[in-house]
C-alpha cells in the first residue's frame, strides 16, 4: 500500500492503517470526547429487534476478548449461543450492525485470532458474499453476527478492523472501477 499523499485530520479517526500495515491509534482524543470514544446520547439497543444477549450461567461463562479500534483489550463474559455482534453492542463496543445482524452487510466484520478460527463452523455462501465487500479482509475474517459462541471458543480473541484505510480520496479514484454500482 502506498503512503497516502492526501493529508486529512486524524484526530477523530479511531484507528488508521499505517503504510506498513500495522494498526496504529489516531492522535488525540480530546477532553470533550468521551474517554471510551463515544457518548451514548441514544441507546444502541432501544429499537433493535436483535441484540438481546443472555446472562451466562455461573461456571459456564465463555470468555471473549475484543481488541478495539483503539487497540484496547476488552474482556467480557458471555453465554453460549450469543453472537459476537450482540455481545459487542451490549458492551458498547464500536461495532455497527447496519442490517441488524441479518448477514446482509459487512459492518460487523471481525478478525478472529487464527488459533480459534478453525473452531468456528465455516462461513456459508451468504456470509462469504458479504465478506467479499468487507474492508481489510484477512484470512480469518468473519461477520460478528454469524459467530455464535460455543464452549470450545472460551478464551476467543477477536479484533475490530480499522475502517478508514480505503477512504482516502485518491483511493476512491483508484478504485472507481472496482466498486459495485448501486
Amino acid at each position: 500500500m502506498a503512503t497516502p499523499s492526501v493529508s486529512y485530520p486524524r484526530r477523530y479517526l479511531n484507528v488508521i492503517q499505517s503504510p506498513s500495515g500495522s494498526i496504529l491509534p489516531s492522535s488525540n482524543l480530546t477532553s470533550f470526547l468521551s474517554p471510551c470514544g463515544a457518548y451514548r446520547s441514544f441507546s444502541r439497543t432501544a429499537v433493535r429487534r436483535h441484540g438481546h444477549i443472555n446472562e451466562p450461567k455461573p461456571g459456564e461463562e465463555i470468555h471473549v476478548t475484543f481488541i478495539t479500534r483503539e487497540g484496547d483489550q476488552v474482556h467480557v463474559e458471555a453465554a453460549e449461543g450469543d453472537n459476537l455482534l450482540d455481545i459487542a453492542q451490549a458492551h458498547d463496543l464500536d461495532m455497527e450492525g447496519a442490517c441488524g445482524g441479518s448477514c446482509a452487510c459487512s459492518t460487523c466484520h471481525v478478525i478472529v485470532d487464527p488459533e480459534f478460527y478453525d473452531l468456528i463452523p465455516e462461513p456459508d455462501d451468504d456470509e462469504n458474499d458479504m465478506l467479499d465487500l468487507a474492508f481489510g479482509l484477512t484470512e480469518t475474517s468473519r461477520l460478528g453476527c454469524q459467530v455464535k459462541l460455543t464452549k470450545e471458543l472460551d478464551g476467543l480473541r477477536v479484533a475490530l478492523p480499522q475502517m478508514t484505510r480505503n477512504l482516502q480520496a485518491r483511493d476512491f479514484e483508484k478504485r472507481a472501477d472496482e466498486r459495485p454500482e448501486q
Binding site: S22, L24, G71, D113, P114, T138
Partner: peptide
C-alpha cells in the same frame, strides 16, 4: 487467560506487537 499466539499469519504482528504500544499511546491520549 493468557495465550501464546502462533506465528502463522501477519495478523499476529497486528495483535501481538502493537498491543503494548497501543496501550501506551491510548494512555497518553
Amino acid at each position: 487467560m493468557k495465550r501464546i499466539w502462533p506465528c502463522r499469519y501477519r495478523l499476529n504482528t497486528i495483535f501481538a506487537n502493537d498491543f503494548c504500544e497501543l496501550r501506551h499511546l491510548a494512555e497518553r491520549q
